[in-house]
């Protein structure tokens, strides 16, 4: 076999492998869209489930997931941004910084079900919040913290040093320089991080299994100490615990579609925001 032919075969093999992966991703998305989209209508999105989820809509699951993710971001965002500001603006290389970074990578690698155990032990039992929106949001907030820190820090570091120096040279204190000359230009990265965090919190099942999710609860939550239904948990229940899983298959696809659309929509939004701001600020 001559050399050129062998080269071409090798390249073909690489290309085939890559596009096979792409094909599988496409097939999964298409399968969910093909079977899920026809189920979606206004009643499905706006009605209470009936008869243990066999009929009716998924409104409480949508609202539950919405509240959960909002609670998560409200807790994780301030802490995440604060940590990112410290790491990018204040931290000197040393033991404390190294420990903080190790803690962040450790958090990023903790399995989601272990977060569930932790939330059960600390928030549900020790703090006596019970299975509730509050306990679930706190647990998810711990989980998405690394995502928010890493993306925020990256965007803070992308602001040129000259901005800080100019501000300091005009007599600003360090905090004033950060607040007026650095933070405004890293908003896009921070929003991106927040959205990615929301996306992750919205799709997770394992941490909420033990801390907040309700099997079947056809009413909307009234306080942060209430249990809620959530989309991923609802899908899990319909697909595995329902007495007649085949009959409710369309409802499963519908729920999967809504969840997927929500999560992928958020990721897409994050990408668009990044592109928009990258065009707006060029230095």
């Amino acid at each position: 076999m001559n050399r050129q032919l062998r080269e071409n075969i090798a390249i073909l093999l690489l290309r085939f492998t890559t596009y096979a992966i792409v094909g599988v991703v496409g097939y999964i998305l298409l399968d969910i869209i093909r079977h899920g989209l026809p189920v979606i209508n206004w009643a499905f999105l706006s009605e209470m489930p009936r008869r243990g989820g066999s009929e009716g809509g998924i409104l409480p699951a949508i609202v539950g997931t919405l509240y959960l993710t909002l609670g998560t971001v409200a807790i994780a965002l301030p802490v995440g941004i604060g940590t990112a500001i410290y790491l990018s603006e204040y931290a000197a290389p040393g033991r404390l910084t190294e420990t903080i970074r190790l803690a962040i990578t450790t958090l990023a690698g903790v399995p989601s079900i272990v977060f569930g155990l932790f939330g059960l032990g600390l928030f549900v039992l020790f703090c006596q919040f019970g299975p509730s929106l509050l306990a679930g949001s706190l647990t998810l907030a711990c989980m998405v913290l690394p995502t928010i820190i890493v993306t925020s820090e990256e965007s803070l570091r992308a602001v040129p040093q000259a901005f800080r120096q100019a501000s300091l040279a005009l007599g600003a204190t360090k905090w004033e320089a950060i607040r007026t000359a650095v933070l405004p230009y890293s908003v896009s990265g921070i929003i991106t991080g927040a959205i990615l965090g929301i996306g992750r919190a919205a799709g997770e099942t394992a941490p909420i299994l033990l801390t907040v999710a309700a099997f079947f609860l056809p009413k909307l939550p009234g306080s942060i100490f209430d249990q809620v239904m959530a989309l991923p948990y609802h899908l899990y229940i319909l697909a595995t615990q329902h007495p007649d899983t085949d009959k409710v298959l369309p409802l499963q696809y519908g729920t999967a579609f809504v969840l997927l659309a929500m999560v992928l929509g958020l990721s897409l939004g994050a990408i668009l925001i990044r592109v928009h701001f990258r065009r707006k600020y060029k230095w």
Binding site: I28, Q252, L260, S267
Partner: peptide, 14 residues
């Protein structure tokens, strides 16, 4: 990378 953002319960369902 879209694969990474598909919720695991959706992949499990698939």
């Amino acid at each position: 990378e879209i694969l990474a953002s598909i919720p695991s319960v959706v992949l499990g369902f698939f």
